[in-house]
Design a protein around this nucleic acid. Structure first.
Length: 455
RNA sequence: GUGGGCGUAGCUCAGUUGGUUAGAGCAUCUGGUUGUGGCCCAGAAGGUCGUGGGUUCAAUCCCCAUCGCUCACCCCA
């Protein structure tokens, strides 16, 4: 049996409602803040990522899906979105048409890591990028968008962490301070942290090893050593968050791995997923546009892991999924009426009704079971005496009330549509089929029940 | 790349301290009177016990290898 590649997952029909729900919230909230969607190719020239994310990072160093295409071009499946967005921004001179571009995206990403809970080789991110302004209002705005999306999904166990990395000059001098501080303790650091000491000393703060953290006690923090402008901007970000009621923690250890960050960085972590607890992360990247060959343009953005978010939602049972009901199931009473049933279904479907019928020549009982399973609001019975009198039996599946209605006038089919619609809307009103408050749907939507989508 | 755990039906899992035709629940299908669902009842279908070797009269069970899944480290969303 051929199986999906390691670290990739099929999103099956039963998963689709959750994803649609998440995507609709993302689109809605971004749209309230007037962010426009951008879609860039899934693969790009490899050098784009090497230059933006940083040669030294693990992403570029060992996690990219890189290959030569038939023309010999070295291409890479995108491991993150910012590089591609900035490339598109520059290539299409978006900055010339509009001084500030507020963009969002939803897209698959690829990184060849060992899979684990909340980590896949093909995964999905949504995110936002505001390119063209250095205003800390945008830092705050993006954190607010991110936070509001997670809240809209019903998530509770969230922590917003923020920090500032300052500008490269102050960061370099701070690194020297830290190097000085740790110099004598280097031998006592873990092996990984010793590597970080040489490669990217700031990342020692990320170490999960207790002894490393102990050695860091009393270390100078980056945030105390910021330049005046970064300090002021950071204050403004905090002010923004306070005003919009977003609880946050200043975490001087929040370093983040991508080379292009400057000033504000942030992360939102969840206590309801596994070890990979960062649901999203982002920050300012004021130098990246210029580095990639554009005009010097400040920017800020974030990226959110959709699988991780959905994992947190499932663990917290944070939102119920509305049962997928159909409007009408047509029952065929005589097997030789197959084409009539199909014909009727086609007409109803063209009237924007969700209609299903049996394609397998099954018995009436089996058809009814199917109608019940699909949670049809009403069933139509086609056949028998009524049908020869141009009438059909309509049944409200919730109350079991049946009614004979005329199916055809001499002139056209419009009358039946009208009557069926009327019956359907009565059914909806009577028992609240369309809402989760309705008795029937309530039964099916109970979290933990076997009818619930959460498993 | 490193380390731990696990592979029995579509799903969730029993099982045999090695011994005849490998089980359950859920799901699926068919029935329970001529044209009616949910509950209930009856029946059916569905498994090379991950794969390949080895030990043995005999392996789903013991040993080895391999593959897959999973969790954690690294790193990151």
């Amino acid at each position: 049996m051929i199986k999906a590649i390691k670290g990739t997952k099929d999103l099956l029909p039963s998963d689709a409602p959750r994803w649609h729900y998440l995507e609709s919230i993302v689109k809605n909230i971004f749209s309230n803040f007037n962010y426009k969607e951008i879609r860039t190719p899934v693969f790009e020239v490899t050098s784009l990522f090497a230059r933006s994310i940083g040669e030294e990072t693990d992403i570029v160093g060992k996690e990219m899906y890189t290959f030569e295409d038939k023309s010999g071009t070295n291409v890479t499946l995108k491991p993150e979105m910012t590089a591609g967005v900035v490339r598109a921004f520059i290539e299409h001179s978006l900055g010339a048409q509009q001084s500030l571009n507020k963009l969002f995206y939803i897209s698959p990403m690829f990184r060849q890591e060992r899979p684990q809970a909340g980590r896949l080789r093909q995964f999905h991110q949504f995110g936002g990028e505001a390119i063209g302004s250095a205003s800390p209002l945008l830092d705050g705005e993006l954190i607010q968008i991110a936070y509001d999306i997670l809240k809209a999904l019903g998530l509770k166990d969230l922590t917003v962490k923020i920090n500032s990395l300052g500008i490269p000059e102050t960061r370099e001098s701070y690194k020297n301070l830290l190097r000085e501080f740790l110099k004598d303790k280097k031998d006592k650091l873990s092996e990984d942290s010793r590597k970080r000491f040489d490669k990217n000393i700031l990342r020692i703060f990320d170490s999960k090893i207790e002894s490393d953290q102990k050695l860091l006690e009393g270390a100078p923090t980056l945030i105390q050593n910021l330049d005046e402008e970064s300090k002021r901007d950071f204050e403004l970000v905090k002010e923004y968050l306070t005003k919009v009621n977003i609880p946050f923690e200043v975490d001087p250890k929040l370093v983040r791995g991508l080379d292009y960050y400057t000033k504000t960085t942030f992360e939102i972590i969840s206590g309801s997923v596994g070890a990979q607890s960062a649901l999203l992360g982002g920050g300012r990247y004021d130098l990246l546009v210029e580095k990639l060959g554009g005009k010097s343009t400040p920017a800020v953005g974030f990226a959110a892991g959709m699988e991780r978010i959905l994992l947190a939602c499932e663990n917290e049972r944070s939102f119920p999924i509305r049962e997928n009901c159909i409007d009408i199931y047509i029952i065929r009473l005589d097997n030789n009426l197959e084409s009539e049933v199909s014909d009727l279904a086609s007409k109803l479907r063209r009237h924007n009704l969700k209609v299903e019928f049996d394609y397998l020549q099954r018995s009436v009982k089996a058809q009814m079971r199917e109608a019940n399973r699909m949670k049809a609001k009403i069933t139509l019975f086609v056949g028998g005496d009524e049908y020869s009198e141009q009438k059909i039996n309509v049944k409200d599946m919730y109350s079991s009330v049946e009614q004979i209605i005329k199916i055809k006038s001499e002139e056209n089919d419009k009358i039946i549509i009208k009557d069926i619609r009327k019956f359907l809307s009565q059914v909806r009103q009577q028992c609240g089929w369309m809402t989760t408050k309705g008795k029937h749907c309530k039964k099916y939507a109970q979290p933990g029940s076997k009818y619930c989508h959460w498993h």
